[in-house]
Nucleic acid binder design. Structure first.
Lengths: 156, 156
DNA sequence: CCTCACTAGTTATGAGCTATAACTAATTGC
DNA sequence: GCAATTAGTTATAGCTCATAACTAGTGAGG
């Protein structure tokens, strides 16, 4: 005979109310992804945000910090710190703009490009690891839905 | 004639490499969701995490902090602070366990349940706001996929 | 029954991400 | 030319997450 005065102690804790919200599922899934991605990038000397910054700099030569901040939806003030770190690592350079003396052009050094290429391969593996159990068509649906949700949120 | 020595300045910044990763899309979408949800909960005196804690306490009477931490995948050490805040607000009580003198039983006060009910309604609106543009069948796919990704991540 | 490993809850601390305000210098619009 | 705006920066603060270390209580084996 089980007592009814005891406490919830096992794994039978109900979170059905929260599971109904996409935000809750997103947070839980993202935490798991983030943990694995952080482990994946650490050996390359990168974090999620610095990896993203490096990726855009490689992909968009002579990118301006302000454009970069806008593209990543990051505050310019915070971006400064990320670029500082990449610059100190010798992977990104700030060269004064030839047309606007307030602005800089960001560029990846050769070493920065090599680090990025290696990290990119590791991230690809990570992505496969996280999505291995998913149907490719579902992945497409998820990516599209996430983009839609993002756009919806930005418009508020 | 456009000069080719200028910097990327407009909205034509490419992030196609990153867009291929679910983690990147998840982070961006989640940031948007989080921003709106934070605004939604603030008037109720709750944050995302304290709302989640309150929800599970309401749903699972006499829940133990350790079981709660496990259910939310949160460190016990951090949970203490969240419960402290809910207790100080008068929404949750800690009563000593009758069977284990180390443990406590968490319970929502009447006021806690009322706050939760009001917040729940607001969160439901928020959820609708974020998902309004999505096909209901896609939402189901997304929720299932997120749960799968989460489970995959936890197994690493 | 006594020791020892383990568990529940807690405290303290640090790192990382985000947001905001305030500042300098340069540009642009009127 | 002057005002408003923009680019980059510095400083700061709040929230989340992770870890270590501690106290107190439990439980299993000898």
């Amino acid at each position: 005979m089980r007592e009814t005065t005891g406490e919830q102690v096992g794994t039978n804790v109900s979170d059905t109310a929260l599971r109904g919200f996409v935000g809750y599922n997103m947070k839980r899934a993202f935490n798991a992804v983030q943990a694995d991605l952080t482990r994946t990038l650490a050996p390359h000397g990168l974090r999620m945000i610095t990896y993203s910054v490096l990726a855009l700099v490689v992909e968009n030569p002579r990118l301006r910090p302000s454009a970069l901040a806008k593209a990543l939806t990051v505050e310019r003030a915070n971006l400064v710190v990320y670029v500082d770190q990449l610059e100190q690592a010798g992977w990104v350079t700030r060269t004064p703009s030839s047309t606007d003396r307030r602005a800089y052009a960001l560029q990846a050094t050769l070493e920065g490009q090599q680090v990025y290429a290696r990290a990119m391969a590791a991230v690809r593996d990570h992505d496969q690891r996280m999505l291995g159990a998913l149907d490719p068509s579902d992945v497409a649906v998820v990516n599209k839905a996430l983009a839609t949700i993002e756009a919806q949120g930005r418009s508020l």
